[in-house]
Amino acid sequence: MNSITAYCHIKDNVCSVNGEIFLQKNEESADSWFKQLYKELALEYPKFYKMDMLSQAGFLGSELIKKTNPGLLTDYADDEIALLFANSESSADTDIRFRESYLEKKTPSPSLFVYTLPNIVLGEIAIRNKWFGENMFAVLPKFTPDFFIQYGSVLLNTGSKAVLAGWLGILEGRVEVFMFLVETENKNGYPFDAENIRKYAGF
C-alpha cells in the first residue's frame, strides 16, 4: 500500500515537520528566513546561496524530510525516488527579477536566467542527492490533491518506489510550501489519498 510517511511545511514565518514546529522565523535576525532554516539544519552546502527562492524552498523541504526520514538516503537505489512538484506561479518570482535585470539594470543576468524555469529545483535536489530518477514539474491553477494522487500513483506503478512531492508557492516574498514523501514499502504512514493530502497540506 502507498503511504505518506513524512511531510513538512514552510510558511511565511514558521516551519514544521510532521505537524510539529521545527523553527519560527526570528524577525530580528539579519539572515533571510530561508538562511535561518539552512543554519538550523546545520548543512554545509554553499551552493544553497546561489539558488533562487523556489530552489531554496524545495531544497530545504527535501532536507527536512531526509532529516525526519533518514531511510530515504539508504533504502533506495539512485533512480527509485521520483520528484513530483507543482505550483501555480511557475518561476514567476525569479522571472520578475530577471526581467528587471534587462529592463532596469540594462544587463540580462545569466545567473538569474538559469533559474527562470520551475523545474530547476528538481535538478538542484537531484544534484544534491545524486538522484537519477523521474522528474516532473506541473503548473496548476490551484493546489489539487487529485493531481498528486493521480500522477504519484502512476510513478509508483512504473518503476519508482518513492515519490518526493511538493507544492512550492513562492512569489514576491510569500511562502507556501508543503512537501511530502510517499513510499510503497513503508507501512508506518497514512494512506496516500486525497483526503489525507488535503488534511496534512492544510490548505
Partner: peptide
C-alpha cells in the same frame, strides 16, 4: 550583488577560498 547571493555577507567569503570549488562558494 552581481551573482544574486543576497544570503551571503562579506564576512562569509574568505580572501583565499577557491570561488569555483564546492568548498568555496561553488561558482
Amino acid at each position: 550583488e552581481q551573482l544574486n547571493l543576497e544570503d551571503l555577507t562579506v564576512s562569509d567569503i574568505d580572501d583565499d577560498a577557491l570561488l569555483f570549488s564546492a568548498d568555496g562558494i561553488g561558482l
